[in-house]
Each structure stands twice: as structure tokens, then as C-alpha cells.
Design a protein around this nucleic acid. Structure first.
Length: 303
DNA sequence: TACCAGGAGAGCG
DNA sequence: CGCTCTCATGGT
């Protein structure tokens, strides 16, 4: 009988693990021991990147690693994805800046809940809120000796039984009633996350947008990051700025114009392209303070 | 200290 | 449709 192992290796080329785990798709991974610590489903996982492979370690023996291969999307040929990108200069620069960035495949509930909590928050804050939420409501998981405690992402049923005040204690502010309402809909079966898989993309998107706290941007994030909708194109403030500066520096493009441009321009893997643009503007372009502040004048004068 | 953050919803014309 | 305001909270 095969009881499995606590370690495995995935052979994969062009996989920038650090960029992928820290590019605002997932919010629960921390650097440690030359690698990364995180939770996938109900398992504590340690990941480490090598030249042409990813090494994984769990606490309890695993006989079937499909769940992790799926999360990491190690079977995707990055080159085939990149070949579908438009050959324009901004896209070329974005890819060159971070070849190896991947789009993960997350659990739908964790992804949906996480992005409901993401609105108008910085990534570091999102990480903090989700950490507090998991610690307070998540099931504790076995971890190796000397490692920090780890928790599963709280289930819809668990959160549905919480109060708004308890959620607000996790510093999620006005997003608390949204998360609570959505948790209750999912827990009660009134909203079926599995059913979205069988729907055409536009229908699934509209379904998600019926949920409180879920608009176009968050719906697109969930479709892209959890359901594998490669053409979904989350349009957030960063990607907006990137499109305006890189593609329309000469005019004031409205958000609707940019949305239409994006869905037509970036092809079948538009979501993947979006992730490269997002990472590119956040790490390389340093487009801080798009409009001059009055207060900065005094500072300049002082200099 | 002010501004801003992987937005969404409600109220308005 | 498109604009504006508000929501809570911490980072820079």
C-alpha cells in the first residue's frame, strides 16, 4: 500500500515563484527558509524554487499531488501563453520585466472572499485582514516543529455563523457586511459556486455581480484566478494607469473605452497579460503621485 | 499631515 | 450613462 510522501518535485521551466506568490493574486504566502510557506486547501505547504523545478513539502504524507499541481498550474506552457500576447512595445517590456510570472488556480470561495476584502485596500493590508480572519475563524492545521501556526481559510459555513462585529474585529471595515452576506448565501446554497463552472463566461460574471460587494473588477478577479477564465481582464486602478500611460498617453480615455480596448487587444489570454501589466507598473514604473500636490510645493521650496 | 489603496453602491441629473 | 460621495483603516 502506498502511503505517499511529504515531498515532491514538479519539473517546470520559466516559473518565477516569488513574483507569482507576491503579485496580488494570493495573500497568504510568506517567505521562509529560502522558500515560501502557505496553505493550500487544508494543507500547510512549503515551496522552494530551483532551476527547472519546484520542490514542495507538506506535513502529512500525500499520495496524490494533483491538488498542488493544479494550484500552481505547472502543466501550463508559459511560452504558448506568451505567444498569444500582442507584440507591441509595452507588452514586450512588461514580459521582459518579469518572465516567469504565472496565474494560479485558486479555490473559488477563498478567492471570492479575499477579493471582497481587497476593495480599496493595499496588498499589505489585505494580507493582514485575511491573516486575522484565518486565525480567528479557520481550522488550525498541523505544521512542522518550530513553525508558526497555520490555519485553513475559513469556510462559508463558519463565516456565516459569525457576527458583523466579529468580522470588523479583523479590520475589514465596511467590507464586513458584504463578506457576511456572501458567506450566508454560499453556506445556505442560495449561491452555488460550483454551478458557475457550467455557465458561459458572461453569465457567470453577471451571477457573481449579483453578490453584494462584488462588481466588475472583483468578478473578473474571481473568474481569472479561481475559474481559469483566461480572457477575464480585471481593471483596477493600477492597470487603468498602465493602459492610459502606455497605450493612450495622448488622450483622456474613459474607463469604458479602456475596457473595450483591453478585451479586443490582448487576446485569449488577456487576463494573463493583465497580470504582467499589473506587476510591471507596480514594480518598475514607479508612477507615484500622478498629480502634483499642493503640499509637495512647500517641500520643494524648502529644498 | 495628507493622500491613497487590486471598489462597490447609492444618489443624483 | 456618467459623475460624486461614502464606506474603514493603515501605509507611506
Amino acid at each position: 500500500m502506498n502511503t505517499g510522501s511529504t515531498t515532491t518535485t514538479f519539473r517546470v521551466k520559466d516559473y518565477d515563484l516569488a513574483a507569482t506568490l507576491m503579485s496580488g493574486q494570493v495573500f497568504r504566502w510568506d517567505r521562509r527558509d529560502e522558500g515560501w510557506i502557505g496553505v493550500v486547501g487544508a494543507r500547510w505547504v512549503h515551496l522552494r524554487s530551483h532551476d527547472c523545478s519546484l520542490a514542495a513539502e507538506t506535513v502529512e504524507p500525500v499520495s496524490d499531488w494533483d491538488w498542488l499541481a493544479r494550484f500552481l498550474q505547472v502543466d501550463i506552457s508559459l511560452n504558448e501563453v506568451l505567444l498569444t500576447f500582442p507584440g507591441d512595445e509595452p507588452m514586450r517590456a512588461a514580459v521582459a520585466a518579469c518572465r516567469g510570472l504565472r496565474v494560479l488556480r485558486q479555490d473559488p470561495w477563498e478567492c471570492l472572499a479575499s477579493f471582497i476584502l481587497s476593495s480599496t485596500k493595499q496588498i499589505v493590508q489585505i494580507r493582514q485582514v485575511i491573516s486575522l480572519l484565518s486565525r480567528k475563524f479557520g481550522v488550525p492545521l498541523p505544521v512542522p516543529p518550530s513553525y508558526a501556526p497555520a490555519f485553513a481559510f475559513p469556510s462559508p459555513v463558519r463565516l456565516a455563523g459569525a457576527t458583523e462585529a466579529e468580522l470588523r474585529f479583523c479590520k475589514m471595515g465596511f467590507r464586513a457586511p458584504y463578506l457576511l452576506a456572501v458567506a450566508r448565501k454560499v453556506a445556505s446554497g442560495k449561491f452555488d459556486l460550483d454551478r458557475l463552472r457550467e455557465m458561459p463566461l458572461a453569465v457567470a460574471r453577471n451571477e457573481l455581480m449579483t453578490l453584494p460587494g462584488v462588481g466588475q473588477k472583483i468578478a473578473d478577479c474571481v473568474l481569472l484566478f479561481a475559474y481559469g477564465a483566461q480572457s477575464a481582464f480585471p481593471l483596477d486602478v493600477w492597470v487603468l494607469k498602465a493602459l492610459r500611460q502606455l497605450y493612450f498617453p495622448w488622450k483622456r480615455a474613459s474607463i469604458q473605452q479602456l475596457r473595450r480596448f483591453a478585451t479586443g487587444h490582448f487576446g485569449p489570454n488577456a487576463g494573463y497579460a493583465q497580470q504582467y501589466l499589473f506587476h510591471y507598473v507596480r514594480t518598475k514604473m514607479k508612477m507615484r503621485s500622478p498629480k502634483p500636490k499642493r503640499t509637495s510645493l512647500a517641500r520643494v521650496e524648502k529644498k
